[in-house]
Structures are given as structure tokens and as C-alpha cells.
Nucleic acid binder design. Structure first.
Lengths: 151, 151
DNA sequence: TTCACTGCAAATGCTTTGCAGCGCC
DNA sequence: GGCGCTGCAAAGCATTTGCAGTGAA
């Protein structure tokens, strides 16, 4: 569906993609973060550091980057979309901290084959799957433990 | 968090749960369906067959049933919550038709151990995970194929 | 100059909530 | 009878969109 050129500049169906300061700001922020962030959070972040990107534009840019496969999208428990630029380029999964959003890329070939095997077994076609692991990262584990001790 | 009695009647933290005709209607509808449905869809369904359950109540009942573990909850790609009564009672996953919502319960002990192993390896704690497989069920595969042929 | 990109604000659509009346236990 | 449950309508929120101005190529 979406193609990406060697330099990260992307195009969709031949339509050009202009390099604006808003797009650069969003891209830079994503590079700097190693966490999954919601559009609202990212917009607040950009706004706080003085970048002029409107909320609507943040939504548009993030959505377009997701379409182009430049960022990974996830849904939090309450249905909010969160985005993250990943090292891994192809299909992969994540181990995500549910407190701070920090994530680790996970490859799991065995799970892939298992999924397609199970699906085919039941006659399902056009298979896709989602596998995400949520937990508390080491740091957040410590913080939560400390808070529990104080209480 | 939530406990369930032997007869499906449930209680939370000692607070009682009354058996109303709305709750029975929702429960019956879920039993009849073998598919994941959104609150909006379920409400439309109930309304069309004459049951008098308001949308707000449908939301409240479904949410409470999810809290009690009486139904499984999933999020569609666009963040909408969908519910389903499952045969399997404990932790399990699903093979879901993305067109009609029909689902098959999946058990995958190997995936469970893999997930907790990976998480621990990275120092993550309080682990949970989601594994869902989406595709087209046999019937929908046929329908889609026919539509493609006609076009 | 052109046309994609932006900002702003209004509009969506799902979900939640306040409140008064109803009905299960 | 008491109190949880309902319905209705009014919020709440994340996300989308129409439109006119702006700026990248």
C-alpha cells in the first residue's frame, strides 16, 4: 500500500509529500522519544517546547506517517491510538510499559507461524494478528514499588 | 477483582447485582450471538427486536459484565469496544472474522509462556498480553470472493 | 504560480454521567 | 420501602473535516 524511499521521505500513490516544519517537528519528537505517545500527548509536548503545530495537524501527520509505515500504531486499553517510531522496519511486536509507554521491539517467528497455522486450520483467510505484551518497565516497577511502600 | 457465583449471577465487592429484564435481554442476545458486537450494534439489535433497553443502559450492562468477567472485550482497529460471551472461561485468545465478527476461542499455552519469558528477560513486571488473530471466516471469504468476481 | 499543508473551529461518533422515576429484592 | 437500575438528555473526549490562508517546490 505505502512505499518508503531510502531516505525516509515517503510518497503515497505518486502524490507528493511536502517537507514542512510541522512534519519535521513531529518526526524529530518521535525520534527523540523511545515511547509510545498519544496524539494529544505529542501535541502537548511539541507545544510546550515552543514548536508551532496545531492539534489537527498533529493528528494528520501522525496518521499519514502510520499509513506510510513510518511509525507503529497501537491502541491503549481505552481505545486511544498511540504512535512510536521503531528500529525494526518489518512486521514485529512490542513489549510496552503501561505506565510510561517505553517499548522494546520483539520478533517472534514462532508466533507468526503459529498464528497462520491456527487460522488456516479454522478456514480463515486474509490473516493478520496482533501480539502485544504489556507490563511495567524496570524503572516504573521500582517507582510503583516505592509508592506502595510509602502508602 | 470480580467474583462470579455458580449460576452466572455475579456480585462485585459485596454489592448486589439485580436481575432486570434489560440485563436478561442483553445476556440472552449475547448467548444467541457467537460474534463480537459493539455496544451500538447490540443496542440496535435489541431495539429492532422490540426489547426496551436504552443505549446508555446497554453500555452500563456490557461494561459491568466485562468487569465481572462474564464477557470478553476486544478493541476494533478504530478503537471501538466489542463484546462477546465465550465458552472458554479462563484466559484465552480469539480468531476473529473482521467482517462479521464471528470468533473462535483459541488456547495457546506456548504463547503464554513465551510472553512471560520475553517480558521477564527485559525486566518487565506485572505482565499482561493480548494476542488476537483477525481474518475472514470461511463464509465471509466466499462472499468476498463472489463480490470480487462480480466486479 | 500551484496545490499540498496548516490552523481554527465546528462537527462527528463513541462513551459517560447527572438526575428523577421505576421496580427488584 | 430501600436502593440499585433505567431512561433521557446533556456532557466529555478523542478524532475528523470544511474552509480560507500560507508556504514548499
Amino acid at each position: 500500500m505505502a512505499e518508503t524511499t531510502a531516505h525516509g521521505t515517503a510518497r503515497r500513490g505518486g502524490r507528493e509529500q511536502r517537507v514542512t516544519k510541522q512534519r519535521l517537528a513531529v518526526s524529530a519528537a518521535l525520534d527523540r522519544l523511545q515511547d509510545f505517545v498519544s496524539t494529544q500527548d505529542l501535541h502537548r509536548l511539541l507545544h510546550d517546547e515552543g514548536a508551532s503545530v496545531s492539534l489537527a495537524t498533529t493528528y494528520r501527520i501522525l496518521q499519514s506517517m502510520a499509513d506510510e509505515g513510518l511509525v507503529d500504531v497501537l491502541r491503549t486499553d481505552d481505545g486511544e491510538a498511540v504512535y512510536r517510531r521503531c528500529e525494526a522496519t518489518g512486521h514485529h511486536h512490542h513489549l510496552v510499559c503501561r505506565r510510561c509507554g517505553r517499548a522494546v521491539d520483539i520478533e517472534a517467528p514462532a508466533v507468526e507461524t503459529w498464528a497462520s497455522h491456527v487460522a488456516r486450520e479454522h478456514g480463515y483467510t486474509a490473516i493478520e494478528h496482533t501480539v502485544e505484551i504489556f507490563g511495567l518497565c524496570p524503572e516504573c516497577t521500582a517507582i510503583v514499588a516505592r509508592e506502595a511502600a510509602e502508602a
